[in-house]
Nucleic acid binder design. Sequence first.
DNA 1: TGAACCCGTGGAATCGATTACACGGACGAT
DNA 2: ATCGTCCGTGTAATCGATTCCACGGGTTCA
Lengths: 333, 333
Amino acid sequence: MAGIKDVAAEAGVSVATVSRVLNGHPSVSPEARARVLAAVDTLGYRPNAVARSLRTDQTRALGLVISDVLNPYFTELARAVEEEARALGYSVVFGNADERPDLQDHHVRTLLDRRIDGLLVSPTDGGSPLMLDAARAGTPMVFVDRWIPGVDVPVVRSDGRAAVRDLVAHLHGLGHRRLAIIAGPAATTTGRERVEAFREALAAYGLDLPDARIGQGDFQAGSGRRVTERFLESPEPPDAVFAADNLMALGALDAIRARGMRVPDDIALAAFDDIPWFVHTDPPITAVAQPTGELGRAAVRALVDRIEGRHPESVTLPARLVVRRSCGEPAPA
Amino acid sequence: MAGIKDVAAEAGVSVATVSRVLNGHPSVSPEARARVLAAVDTLGYRPNAVARSLRTDQTRALGLVISDVLNPYFTELARAVEEEARALGYSVVFGNADERPDLQDHHVRTLLDRRIDGLLVSPTDGGSPLMLDAARAGTPMVFVDRWIPGVDVPVVRSDGRAAVRDLVAHLHGLGHRRLAIIAGPAATTTGRERVEAFREALAAYGLDLPDARIGQGDFQAGSGRRVTERFLESPEPPDAVFAADNLMALGALDAIRARGMRVPDDIALAAFDDIPWFVHTDPPITAVAQPTGELGRAAVRALVDRIEGRHPESVTLPARLVVRRSCGEPAPA
DNA sequence: TGAACCCGTGGAATCGATTACACGGACGAT
DNA sequence: ATCGTCCGTGTAATCGATTCCACGGGTTCA
């Protein structure tokens, strides 16, 4: 593959001049520029990004470590991240943690070794030493969706509190009183927060959330199924179930169907995270929708700000309730 | 960040010795090795992958350009690719083409600039000059799922012919005679092949596939909806629709529901590509399932073979029919 | 005892770019 | 006419690793 030296030889100039032309440096004569450009063209030369990165100490690549690629929420997030990054001249290197801290660590390490300019993480757990060290060492970093308390890293996330209140109002209005939640892992912020928001919203209606109606899930479908089965077998089963993410909602739907019960007639179901598929399930599922795309874009902007030496603030965007038919009421529209 | 020189100084040896220890080169004395390892540890040294890549001319990274991240089929493929690559000591840099040739080109170019060791592509179109040049120039490359005819690049894909025959038999057995297909873009191999397989299978039953029952889609949900609407409005609407991918099937389901019709009572529906969600739709959708994970893994193995100088064969794995309820018969199990 | 060899080690070249510095020539000001 | 500036250009150092080559010292074998 042709290198900068070949271009220089072909154009009859020095490598310095070639480099200047390629980087838009002003002091190059029009003739030299033309000859270099011609040489680049005939040789089909493309600068070696590896060499450039070594010299300039920047790769123009961002790392994105997501918790689970099979989760449509993260998939949509990843897509938005890549789009915004591309618009700003960065590539994105993805790592899929599969909700496993060890895998998350592996990816963080690899990305750091590759000297990506910045890291976007949606942490699976409380944070490994590796990640905390990286943050302290000044690696530009931004948390998205989930975060780790006590670490000085900007967070881009959405606040579901108001939407969860709306959801509880909706359920209450439809006559549901025994509300249950399938929670996410306590090691994640989203796992804890959604339970808290739910509990607070219930309290406003004088309802409480006994332990028997908090099921411990792990953000994957299987756990949603298991937790729901337990709910249904309990002496006083809930009349509405709120799943803290979309995959667990799916598992819940499964479990409910398996017992021959119907949504929403026999039990109501709602989910955190809205995804295109919820329109197509039977019945369509009522969900708390995050502004996923905007979250991804804001996260990239914040990260690039940090990379370029600015000090971005954390961003919190509101989520909103999307009412469909899984809680009992026909969709308004 | 500490470099190899710092380690050398700390350990009281030369950089050459440090490098030898790090790369497991045999001729290093146990004492030197121990001192280097200790120094690495106290300094928290991690080799700079960029510098290493420049010198060794290999990045131990694979590029994966997929057609659409939002399509669960590709998401699962990507996951399998990353897993196998990781097992073989490679990272994966993803690019999402979003079914757009220009984006596909952008990603191929960027990946090539970054000097990835090999490229995995599921081409959106017939192949840009860029990609064809790269293939000719000897960049290790493997096509997965879709491919470009006439290019000397191994292909890892699945053959749906038999499964489509099974599907047609299934539909025929249930009394369906006016079968229609929502096809993928003619620029893709999968777009063309699935129509051909369908047509051949129909011929075996003396059925034909008139143009009126071939709808042109683009592998995305919107097109599935539009094509299905046209089918339903036609004077003699089909009694079964086969969508050439999962997203278009979803669009079809939408369109059918919107007209107040029911699957499978009023019309049968089947899809190419099986995805977890098909179990949860109403009704569960009968689909041709590809061995997606195995496809991804085989593709990585083939690519790594090429990278290491071997000459892997193309791989074709069979797809199989998964019968659910969307064509009329209760699921057997 | 001396030649041949092996082993562990360090010095220095190298990968392909960017960029500080120096230099020669043209031009303007005095 | 002389001096200082500025502009376009080239030479060479540099980024952080890997690796070829040479070297010194200890073995082994004749």
